[in-house]
């Protein structure tokens, strides 16, 4: 290809340069089209609240509401939706039972025995305390998942630069780091095969395996840091940090809708706390 046949600069007809297509979220997935900060500012207080609520019904209600919100708000497709809707109660059940085992049986000896096997008994009280943990775990997972499905790391970073006054140089360091990830994967593959042919930490068993893995860390990180150093020179050479702000061509506007969304999350926090205290 002689792509270097340099065309004479033509400007007129393409005066507006199309912005690259953003992740194509379904139109109606209102949480995905919302400002990325919503999925940070909304669910996070609820995650804290989960720690302080010790009421089974309130925790269960939060779980149900979040599960519905995950499915309706991010439209993750039939497979994930099914996994969320079926997985959540299942997980809660498993944690409840398994966690019950850790509970000191003596403290709940007065509650009815559910299962008796010889001298060992599983009390209803154990299950109840287990269920508390189970619901907390599930609520927390669902709230986290809500954010995970609604937005991506780079979008949160860009939005934070715009609205949270995070210095853009910090944000862009994180954005550039996202591009290191596939590179690390590739490098790791090469280093692994190089170490294999050079006969490093051969042998079986977890000890040899751990030593092998640890041996990869140094060349991988050293290579990564070298690369980062070169990237930083390229960034500096392209005026990175020349001013205290920079022009952003793509923006994440904060709309009224976003405020409403965050406020409703916060209202849910208050409601949960009030309900839990009132019982």
């Amino acid at each position: 290809m002689s792509a270097a046949t340099v065309q004479a600069p033509v400007v007129a007809e393409h005066a507006v340069v199309a912005a690259p297509a953003r992740a194509s979220a379904p139109r109606r997935a209102f949480l995905r089209t919302a400002n990325p900060l919503v999925s940070l500012a909304g669910p996070f207080p609820l995650m804290v609240v989960v720690f302080f609520v010790a009421d089974l019904r309130v925790l269960a209600a939060m779980g149900v509401a979040t599960a519905i919100l995950v499915v309706a708000g991010t439209l993750p497709g039939p497979r994930v939706s099914a996994a969320v809707l079926l997985g959540a109660p299942l997980t809660a059940g498993i944690v409840a039972v398994s966690f019950g085992f850790w509970v000191d049986a003596a403290a709940v000896a007065s509650t009815p025995v559910l299962v008796q096997a010889g001298p060992w008994a599983y009390h209803a009280g154990q299950l109840e305390i287990g269920l508390l943990t189970g619901l907390r775990v599930v609520d927390l997972m669902l709230l986290a998942l809500l954010g995970a499905l609604a937005t991506t790391g780079p979008d949160v970073v860009r939005a934070s630069i715009q609205h949270l006054r995070i210095p853009y140089r910090l944000g862009y360091a994180a954005l550039a780091a996202v591009r290191f990830v596939p590179r690390f994967g590739h490098e790791l593959e090469v280093i692994r095969s190089a170490h294999r042919v050079r006969g490093v930490a051969r042998g079986r068993g977890p000890v040899a395996a751990t030593r092998r893995q640890a041996g990869y860390a140094v060349p991988l990180l050293a290579g990564g840091i070298r690369h980062a150093e070169r990237v930083s020179y390229a960034m500096d050479a392209r005026a990175f940090g020349a001013h205290s702000t920079r022009t952003e061509r793509t923006t994440h506007p904060w709309r009224l809708r976003d405020t409403a969304l965050v406020l409703s999350f916060w209202a849910a926090c208050v409601a949960a706390l009030v309900l839990a205290a009132g019982v």
Partner: peptide
């Protein structure tokens, strides 16, 4: 902010990227 070099930022970013992958 001025005293912080891009190289320092990116070095931390590289370590952070590796830690993040982990």
């Amino acid at each position: 902010m001025k005293s912080v070099t891009t190289r320092y930022l990116m070095t931390c970013a590289a370590i952070g990227a590796a830690a993040g992958v982990l």
